[in-house]
């Protein structure tokens, strides 16, 4: 037997730190610091909630999509978002919480979701702007998470990123079709981009100077790049795409900066983000209300299915094939 005088806690902490430093993935049953566990639960849950709440602004147009092809694409996309929410809740559950608890926290407003989904989708072109800008920003945030130090989160993100790639393209395609269509369609596309541009930039979170959790998350290998770095990458990627669309981005200060080799952009109105996070966005109440109603109105369905399962527990094992 090995004799070790250091207290267990310290030894475990040292082993954990070494694993993170060596880029070895942490798995559910490994010892982990309580702060790491709590940070992950909060972040993964918030991410899952964003996928689930994010179904609503686009779900808003499923019944009104202007062609059957677009209707099918939109339906498949919103469905993917439900799937992504489930992959993420499933990753969070490996940390010892259950989905019902997390949904309760969402429904009671104790856990947040991405503020971008508190903006309304007023026209069809918003489906394009969400796909192009919102999903584009989300992908920029998510790709580094595929290498997150926590195994289940990283694996969920790999799956999600693979599926997301069609989301951004279909958004771009919608805007491209509109901006090359009738004058009314082009105006609709420009209006959508005008409304979604700034909120998309806010999706990367507060500036590095004001970001409270960033440093620790970086040290833990949960976060790989700072908010400002990712935001800059997004702007650099998006500006040429806007040119290809023939649409303008609503920022008079936006210009190529030779010196830095990046696009410089105007000041973000952080008071708006604060306001929307605090609950004073156009759709905060509506989004939560819809989610809560669906959950509450579904309670009798879930209870009845659970009761059926209890009644038939003895016989149900014979119904499925046995794995071999």
């Amino acid at each position: 037997m090995q004799v070790d005088d250091t207290p267990t806690q310290e030894r475990l902490q040292a082993r954990f730190d070494r694993m993170v430093a060596d880029e070895v993935r942490i798995e559910p049953r490994d010892w982990m610091p309580e702060g790491y566990r709590r940070t992950l639960i909060r972040q993964i849950a918030q991410h899952a909630h964003s996928e689930i709440i994010g179904m609503q602004p686009e779900g808003n147009w499923i019944t009104r999509a202007p062609s059957l092809r677009r209707k099918a694409i939109l339906m498949a996309k919103v469905q993917d978002e439900a799937g992504h929410g489930l992959y993420l809740y499933s990753a969070a559950e490996t940390l010892g919480v259950d989905r019902e608890e997390l949904l309760d926290l969402l429904h009671s407003g104790k856990q947040k979701y991405s503020s971008i989904f508190n903006y309304p989708t007023l026209t069809w072109a918003d489906m394009g702007a969400i796909g192009w800008l919102v999903d584009g920003a989300a992908i920029m945030n998510q790709v580094p998470l595929c290498r997150c130090s926590y195994g289940p989160y990283g694996r969920a993100m790999v799956r999600i990123c693979k599926e997301e790639s069609f989301h951004q393209r279909q958004g771009f395609e919608i805007l491209h079709t509109l901006s090359h269509g009738t004058p009314a369609q082009k105006a609709m596309a420009q209006d959508a981009v005008d409304r979604f541009w700034w909120p998309s930039l806010m999706m990367f979170g507060p500036p590095d100077s004001a970001s409270t959790h960033s440093e620790r998350s970086m040290a833990w290998g949960i976060k790989r790049f700072s908010n400002d770095e990712l935001r800059q990458r997004f702007v650099d990627m998006t500006v040429p795409q806007a040119e290809a669309l023939g649409l303008t981005l609503p920022d008079p200060d936006l210009r190529w900066d030779e010196e830095s080799g990046h696009y410089a952009f105007g000041e973000i109105d952080w008071s708006e983000l604060d306001r929307v996070i605090r609950g004073d966005g156009p759709c905060n109440a509506q989004r939560i209300e819809r989610r809560r109603t669906a959950h509450e109105e579904g309670a009798w369905v879930r209870e009845s299915a659970a009761a059926y399962a209890r009644k038939h527990a003895a016989t149900s094992s014979a119904a499925g094939e046995t794995a071999a």
């Binding site: 992959y87 990753a91 799956r159 499925g320």
Partner: peptide, 20 residues
Amino acid sequence: HVGSLHAPDGEMALRNARDV
């Protein structure tokens, strides 16, 4: 192994797994 999901019983779990 690909992940997990919730279902009231095995038969529904299989069907949900197919969809998810």
